[in-house]
């Protein structure tokens, strides 16, 4: 599966459009419980635990999007977008969406 966030796959021709595909996941971050992040909050800088957590969520959302595209018979997803939004206190939704196409 080829992913791009532009309108085409350079060097290839789009032969069929399958429409929008998407994948999302909502993850809760356990604030008070995450002791390491709490300590890190004092000195500032990167909170590695959260970086990894969100990265995992994004991979999960992307994989769900890819699975949807594969089911449709696509071999590429163009114009991929990522968004993150807080849907509830302490939980964020990660959404990946794009246009499934067949390229040759």
């Amino acid at each position: 599966m080829i992913l791009t966030n532009i309108d085409s796959v350079p060097g290839k021709q789009i032969v069929q459009h399958f429409g929008l595909v998407q994948g999302s996941t909502i993850r809760a971050k356990h604030f008070g419980r995450d002791f390491a992040a709490g300590l890190k909050n004092i000195v500032g800088g990167e909170l590695k635990g959260y970086t990894e957590l969100l990265q995992e969520s994004r991979t999960e959302a992307t994989n769900r999007m890819i699975a949807q595209a594969r089911e449709l018979g696509a071999n590429a997803i163009i114009n991929v977008r990522f968004t993150t939004s807080s849907v509830a206190q302490g939980a964020s939704e990660i959404l990946a969406y794009g246009t499934a196409v067949r390229v040759e």
Partner: peptide, 24 residues
Amino acid sequence: HVDAPAPIQSTSLASGSVVVSIDQ
């Protein structure tokens, strides 16, 4: 779009992220 000085062989999605906080 970019005027490529050479033929494009392949493309792929690249992403990177970081979570930061400020000090006390």
